[in-house]
Every structure is written in C-alpha cells, then in structure tokens.
Design a protein around this nucleic acid. Structure first.
Lengths: 190, 190, 190, 190
DNA sequence: CATGAATGAGAATTCATTCAT
DNA sequence: TATGAATGAATTCTCATTCAT
C-alpha cells in the first residue's frame, strides 16, 4: 500500500544514494528532492536506514523472483544460463541506480537489516549454482565446482554497475552475448 | 620514509575500515586502536580521508605494478592471463582487508582523490585488456571484444572480496584454477 | 523577515563579541545566552562567521544610509559636517557594542566577507570626503586635501568606541560640540 | 639581553600578527617563519600571549618615551603639538606593522596583560592632554576640554594604521602637515 | 639548543530524529 | 498531513604547550 509520496521518496532516495552514497546523503537532501520538510518525511519513512533497506530489499527480491522463474522453465541448462545472464544484465542496466544502491550501499545497513539482504543475496547465488549443477547433471557442462563457478559469473555480472555508465552505448543484450560466449566457450581457439 | 607509527596507524585503519566501513569508523576508533589520543593521530595523518586515500592508493598501485610485470614477460598470452588471474587472487586473498577497503570504500573519497584512484583502476583494466588483445593478435584467443571481456574477468576476480571469508578453506591457487578454466575453456563439454 | 529568535541571537552575539571578542566567544557561549542548544543555533545562523558578518554589515549600512541622507540635505557644508559628526557620535554611542564589533572585530572575517565590509567602509569615507569637497567648492572651507582630512575626522570619530565607556557621563552631543569646534575652528586663538 | 633569535622571532611574529591577526597565527606559523620547530620556540618565548605582550609593550613604551621627550622641550605648546603629531605619524608609519599589532591585536591579551598595555596607553593620552593644557595655560590655544580634544587628535593619528597602506605614497611629514593644519586652524576660512 | 612526539582540551558544525502545533 | 523548532550526541580537526631524548 505504498502511497504516491512513498514511491516518490524512494525514487528520490535511490537517485541520491546512487549519486552521493548513503552516508553523504542527508535526510534534508531527500526532503528537498521531494519538496517536503525534513520533519514531514517521517510520515512516510521510519528512518533513513529503513529507506535504504526497502530499496535494497525490493531490488534483490526482484532479481530472485526473475531467476526463480528462469530456473523453472523447461529448457536446457545452457539456455537457462544464457537467460540468467541476459536477465541479470537487463535488470541491472535498466535499473542501474537501484542496482548500484543494492550492491554498493547495503553495507551501510546495521547488522540485522544487512543480514536480511545478505540472506537474499545468498539465495540468489544458490539459484545460479543450481543452474550450473543442472548443467553438470545433464552432461551439458564440464565437471566444475558449481558454487565457485557461480561466484565467478555472478561477480562478472554484478561488476557491471561499476563501469556501465562510461560505456553507455552498449545494450544489455550486446553485453550478454559477450559474457555468454565467454562463460560457455572460453577464450581459447578451437 | 613511513615511520613505525604511521604503518601501525595504516594497519589499524585498514582493519577498522574493513570491519565497520569508512564512515562508521571514527578517528577516535583509530586512535584507540593504536593507543594514541585523537589529536596525536594528526602528527601522522593529514585527515581521515587522506588515510583512506593512502591505503587505496598503495593497494591499487601494487596491483598495477605486478600486472605490468606479468605483461612484460615473454610467455604466451594464455600464460599471461593465467598468471594475471593467479596473481590477482593471491594478492586479493592475502591482503583481503586492504583489497576490501580499496574496492568497497574508495567511493567515500571526495571527488579529486576518488578520481585519482579511478584513474589507477582504469589503468589496471587497460593492462588486462592488453593481455586479451595480445592473445587475439597471436591467434591464441578467439576474436573477442577485449575490453568487455576484461571487464567480465576483472569483475569475477574483484568480486572475491565479497565472498572469500565465508569460504575460507580455499586457497588462491584453487580458485585460480577454476577461474582460469572457466575463462579459457568455458563451461560447455567438448 | 528576521524572526524574534534571530534578533535575539544577534543581540546576544553583539554583546558577547563586544565583551570577549569574536574569537574568545564560542558558539556555546551564544547558545547559552539565548537558552538554546549549540546545535539549535544553526537553525538561525549559517555559521559563527556569518553572524559576525550580519552584525557588521547592518552596522556599516546604517552609518552609510544616515550619512547619505545628511549629504542630500540643502544646507551649507559646514552644517553638513556638524550633522555628520553629531550623527556619527550619536549612533556610535547609542549602539556602542555594535559599533565596537564593527570596528574591532571585522578583521576576524575571512577574506571575502571582510572585503565586503571594507567596501562599505570605503564608501563611508567617500561620503565624508564629499562633504569636505563641497565645502571647498562653496568656499566655506579652506583649501584642504579632502580625503586626508576626512580620514582625520573619521579617525577621531571612530576612536570613540575605545574610550567612551570610561568617560560615560558625556553625551554624544557634548562630544560633538567639542569635535565640531576642533575641526571647524582649530585650537589656535583668534 | 634579547638574543638574535629572540629578535628574529619577534619580528616574524609582528609580521604574522599584522597579516593574519593574532588568533589566526599559530605558533607553528611563527616557528616556520624562523626555521625552528614548534617546540624549540619555547626556548625563547614563554607563550604566544607573552610574545604579543612584548611586542605591544615595546611599541607603546616607545611612543611614550618619545612623547615625554617632546613634552620636556622648551618650545611653545603649538610647536609641541606639531612635533607630537609628526612624531606619532613618523613612528606609526615607519613601524606600521608593529603599530597595527599594538592597536588592533592588544585586545587578544588576557585581562592582566591587557590592563598593562591599557595603562601605558592611558599614560600616552595623558601626555597629549598635558600639551593641550599647557597651550591653554599659555593662552596659545582656545579654551578647550583638553582630554576630549586629545582623544580626538589621538584618534585621528591612531587611525592611520587602518588606511596608510592603501595611500602608501604619502610621507609621514605630508600627513602631519595636513593634520597639524586641521587641528590648529580648523577648516573654516578666515 | 633543538627536536618532535604526545597531550587534552576545545572548537565549529552536522544530522537523524522527535514533537507540539 | 505538514511544519519547523529543538535536540543532543557525534564528528573531524586545531592548537598551545610540555617534556624526554
């Protein structure tokens, strides 16, 4: 039951947290961005930290739900992996600010809320791992250490928020093709 | 010409910045850690921000110097890539706290110092890219987009600081073998 | 649009700056004087320095406006000079604290704000000079170097904040008569 | 028995206090200026405040001694007054920095040292007053309130440190002629 | 004489949050 | 719902001075 104002505040916060970082963003900054007084913000949010938690939670939940859907499809593991990559990149790039806040600013959360995000992030890793395990089981993929491999792929994908802005001309699809090719076929000729 | 105390302060700061983050670490925390009064710290540092800059600068410079060395070796590109991966993981993991501060906390720097680190980081990417370009030129590697591929590999490697602690039993070498295999041969059978 | 509290703060600051000097007055002192917490002061002021600037600016602007009025009157230069002296002394003495802060503490301002006050002070000198020039032109006054003479008269008048308290029994008018006599007629007999 | 170093320190302090003000000048600044370490300064000075006191004390004592000499001369009061003016302006202008420190920074002294300077300053005023009283007694001067008149003349002369730099081309003698003419003859024609 | 490490008190300012209106 | 005054704790940094070497 998020009111218009709540959504507006969250959007402003995402933008500010992405630009300046959570700590460098004051509650006053957010209030200014939505045309309210500092005090009035507290009708809509519990705390600045809670605002960050909501943003991060929604972001990682979205990633999880989409990956769960892909995992449930009746297609080869190779296709699932490619879909996972393309999905991740598409979501990352089209919500670049939110993704940046999730990946860069979650550490600013206190212990409990941070653990909450961490658990969902672990879950996301598990889903990627599951795709790899399926591929090994199906004999589509070489025998690999699925979790470690998932961490490599996920690392590559998560790194995107760090460089995408500068190389802004690429589409998520173009990146996905390169990444998919790398992870499926490797660099070596033949 | 760094005195003992300066080194001690930098080490304490690395540890605290890694554990609590730059913003959550007060100058008082650092002073306590080295057994000085708050004010006395300022005999050794210019500012808290400068302390972070020194740490990050030394870290990325170390990465760059080692990779430059690898690039200069007279070995096939494939071997250079494997050496780069192993080197990066070894350094990351043996200086996990410093690497974490570099990769996670540099954003806390103000514009100018942040750009300084960014420039050195861009240089590091260029070195990875150069290895890939060499491999393509030598016809060791498939035709790839070298920069995008470098970003993928570097992303995977840089992500390590996020998960290594939890999987603490692995050595850098073990991770390097898995990563190297993934990037050279890909996942697909045959 | 200055609120009551803002006025109250400015008054307290004037009093403290006059008694202890700007540097020896802490923000805490001002807060105590108006019954607020240190932090609460910052709802009303930008900074301690800005507070000083406001005080000095208002003071010199007041001097300027009154002298501009006198200059515009249709009376002989001699009368303008006497009015200027009486006005200056009346304002100085009735706002002795503010005048003291203006003349003694403005140097504590940083470069830019200090220049701002300096410019207005230069303007004040120009107005005195204009009176003298008028008197010379009208052949009321001897030929003199108007600016240098203005500096002498203004110096004498500005010095009042240094000694008035001790000789507190004199009225501004009494002082003005002595000063006026001195500057118009000189000391010599005949 | 002021050593070379002590003199050097005092000169550096005068220059810095004049340029930046006493409060804005750190002990480190002074140490830098004379090529010593902060700690080493304390072999030569008791405290920063004492340094200011020495400077101010020497300055006002110099003014007093010279005026006492003038007062003791066997010449008309009119000549004494002109000599006093010329002397004051000559000393002020040739030691402009010291005079500025005396007149602008003495207020930074604590109560007791400040009173010490104040007493010497009062003495200086008394000497000027004595000249005027002598002139009245001799019937050289009109009947005036000697102290108030002395305050006017002294104010005019003391103000010089505020404007002289800008009008740097004038000599002390040139200023003295204008000031002397003003105080003896006044502005009015005839 | 000179150093420079260390002190410890104090400074201005920021800021998330609360609450009466 | 909205305000904005008020809080009070926290933060970074400065600085005059001391003293063992």
């Amino acid at each position: 039951m998020a009111s218009n104002k709540q959504v507006e505040i969250a959007l402003a916060a995402v933008q500010l947290f992405e630009q300046k970082g959570y700590h460098a963003t004051s509650v006053q900054d957010i209030a200014d961005a939505v045309g309210l007084q500092k005090g009035s913000l507290y009708h809509y949010i519990h705390s600045k930290e809670d605002l960050l938690l909501q943003i991060a939670h929604q972001a990682i939940t979205d990633f999880n739900q989409r990956l769960e859907h892909i995992l449930s499809l009746d297609i080869p593991a190779k296709e699932k992996l490619l879909a996972a990559i393309e999905n991740h990149l598409t979501v990352s790039i089209s919500n670049l600010q939110t993704t940046t806040v999730l990946l860069r600013e979650s550490f600013a959360l206190g212990e409990n809320p941070h653990q909450m995000i961490q658990d969902l992030t672990d879950r996301y890793l598990d889903l990627w791992t599951a795709i790899l395990e399926e591929g090994v089981r199906n004999e589509e993929f070489r025998i690999v250490q699925p979790k470690l491999t998932a961490l490599a792929i996920l690392g590559a994908c998560n790194w995107v928020y760090r460089w995408y802005k500068q190389s802004g001309s690429l589409t998520a699809h173009e990146v996905a093709i390169v990444f998919g090719g790398l992870f499926l076929d490797g660099l070596l000729k033949e």
